[in-house]
Amino acid sequence: MLWLLGIVMIAQFTATVTAALTVDQLRSDIRGPNDLPGRTIATAPGSIAAAWLQAHDLPFVPVSDTEHAYGMLVRGEIQAIVYEAPQCRHWLAMRGPSMAALVGPVFRPEHYGIALPPGSPLRKPINVALLAMQEDGTADAIGRRWFGMPH
């Protein structure tokens, strides 16, 4: 069951993962990446989101995880979070949109994969299962359940 759940989650990530979206308080005037200069932003050091911010000369407050970042946002210590979209979507889906909202476009789309040893007999069954989930709507259902939206 855990293996199947892992495959389901990987399928969702494969279909919907993006590097970062800005999360801000609903009353904020941040609407996208062009509104980030001069704002206090949090992200995880070493992440794709951090690389994007650094490439655009945007300083950030380093955080170890999304829970820490969201706590800082709610307390008003930061004005935006740039983080991987699935984590932001999951956090909002589990807590509701009353504290924060996803805004702006996907900054830098990224895709994940499943690493297997060369010649693994699991490669084909995993690929077949992932494609079947996309075709029969299971991936969309998982996206709605865990991320508040279809992949």
Rank of each mutant, 00 (worst) to 15 (best):
93 A>K: 08
76 G>T: 07
8 V>D: 12
6 G>K: 03
48 I>S: 10
32 G>F: 01
40 T>P: 04
135 E>P: 02
93 A>G: 09
136 D>Y: 11
128 V>T: 07
59 P>Y: 06
108 R>G: 12
51 A>P: 05
23 V>E: 01
104 G>S: 08
38 G>R: 08
12 Q>W: 09
101 A>Q: 08
139 A>M: 06
149 M>R: 13
53 L>Q: 01
17 V>P: 04
125 P>L: 06
87 Q>C: 04
107 F>R: 13
34 N>E: 14
70 Y>P: 09
74 V>G: 06
90 H>W: 03
151 H>P: 06
134 Q>D: 15
8 V>F: 09
87 Q>V: 00
106 V>N: 15
55 A>N: 12
19 A>G: 15
14 T>R: 13
89 R>P: 09
74 V>W: 01
40 T>I: 02
127 N>E: 15
106 V>D: 15
51 A>K: 03
124 K>Q: 14
115 A>L: 15
82 V>E: 11
46 G>I: 03
80 A>R: 08
7 I>L: 15
105 P>F: 02
89 R>H: 12
9 M>H: 15
76 G>S: 11
4 L>C: 10
120 S>A: 13
106 V>M: 15
143 G>M: 03
18 T>G: 15
51 A>R: 05
111 H>P: 05
96 G>H: 05
67 E>I: 02
70 Y>G: 03
72 M>D: 07
22 T>G: 10
56 H>N: 12
109 P>N: 05
16 T>G: 13
73 L>T: 03
53 L>H: 05
92 L>Q: 00
12 Q>V: 13
33 P>V: 12
68 H>P: 09
64 S>I: 08
142 I>T: 05
48 I>F: 03
27 R>Y: 09
64 S>Q: 09
91 W>E: 03
109 P>C: 09
120 S>Q: 02
38 G>S: 00
58 L>Q: 09
149 M>F: 01
79 Q>I: 07
106 V>E: 14
39 R>N: 10
9 M>D: 14
146 W>K: 11
135 E>Q: 12
96 G>C: 07
77 E>L: 03
73 L>M: 00
27 R>W: 09
47 S>A: 08
4 L>P: 02
23 V>T: 08
37 P>T: 08
105 P>Q: 13
23 V>N: 02
139 A>D: 08
116 L>T: 10
98 S>W: 04
92 L>Y: 02
52 W>Q: 04
38 G>N: 07
24 D>M: 10
143 G>F: 08
13 F>H: 15
26 L>H: 12
151 H>T: 12
108 R>W: 10
73 L>C: 04
25 Q>H: 13
79 Q>A: 04
113 G>D: 06
119 G>A: 06
147 F>Q: 07
33 P>H: 10
34 N>C: 06
52 W>Y: 04
111 H>Y: 12
1 M>K: 15
87 Q>R: 07
61 V>H: 00
114 I>Q: 07
11 A>Y: 03
